[in-house]
């Protein structure tokens, strides 16, 4: 009886020791990467951070640091890919934009993005202010509040209260609809992005999805393209200047 009690006690102590350890594990690995980066071992830092990336951690800091480490090892395409991913978390970050501009300046193809109309850009930036989930929660809360306010409006008998409730419910309706659309925008930007970065050093864009077709253009690694239709091993891409062509699907990686 006594031994069993002891065993239980030991088990409890072990659990108490291990639970916080496993809880901070990704943070420890992140810091290991930071230390390796500071010591100049960029490949080691990439290994550490890529483990976290592969495990599904997608923080801004992680993506930004991974991009920096790739930049330092000279893998520009990977660096741009991770910077673009980080830009979907915090597009307004000053350091990130500086590094991304620097990295884009070093790729072979000249990068000129067609500017988006200002309100579309604002809308995108606004949608990236919080995660899609936060927007979705806001939307559902606003929706429930709208319904509750409409009910109160219907049941109240006093005139002034009724007017107030009417406007409040209208406001809530606006909040609901805008946050739902922001949530959808965020999802489309982050999770259903059609943008991709060219990974292969040099690829030729063709007029149709086959090896024998007419060559249209030559692009190099690091270029940002829009992906389109996929047929077998081929994918249609759209260049920043609007030209379209077919390239092998393994020559780029989606943001």
């Amino acid at each position: 009886m006594n031994t069993r009690l002891n065993k239980t006690l030991i088990l409890l102590i072990c659990l108490a020791v291990f639970i916080p350890a496993t809880g901070t594990d990704p943070e420890i690995r992140f810091q290991e990467g930071v230390r390796l980066y500071q010591d100049g071992d960029f490949n080691g830092a990439i290994d550490k951070w890529m483990e976290l990336n592969d495990a599904g951690y997608q923080n801004f800091e992680l993506l930004y640091n991974t991009g920096n480490a790739y930049f330092k090892t000279g893998e520009l395409a990977q660096a741009i890919l991770f910077y673009e991913r980080a830009a979907l978390r915090r597009p307004w970050n000053d350091d990130l934009n500086y590094n991304l501009t620097l990295a884009r300046g070093q790729i072979r193809d000249r990068y000129d993005e067609i500017p988006v109309v200002f309100f579309v850009r604002w809308f995108s930036v606004l949608s990236l202010l919080f995660t899609s989930d936060v927007w979705a929660y806001t939307a559902i809360i606003a929706f429930v509040l709208t319904l509750a306010l409409i009910l109160l409006f219907l049941f109240s008998s006093r005139y002034r209260l009724k007017t107030l409730l009417f406007w409040l419910s209208g406001l809530m309706l606006v909040v609901f609809s805008s946050s739902l659309s922001l949530a959808l925008r965020n999802r489309n930007l982050v999770f259903r992005s059609r943008e991709a970065i060219i990974i292969s050093p040099v690829i030729t864009g063709r007029s149709s999805p086959s090896d024998g077709s007419q060559d249209l253009f030559v692009i190099h690694e690091g270029l940002k393209v829009q992906t389109g239709e996929r047929i077998g091993e081929w994918c249609e891409i759209r260049l920043p200047d609007g030209n379209k062509g077919w390239v092998p699907s393994n020559s780029f990686e989606g943001i």
Binding site: P26, V34, Q38, Q58, F60, N68
Partner: peptide
């Protein structure tokens, strides 16, 4: 330079939407 502060790393779960 990289970010050295430890961020709150949260695993990306399923998308709510």
């Amino acid at each position: 330079f990289i970010r050295t502060g430890t961020p709150a790393l949260r695993n990306r779960g399923g998308l709510l939407l």
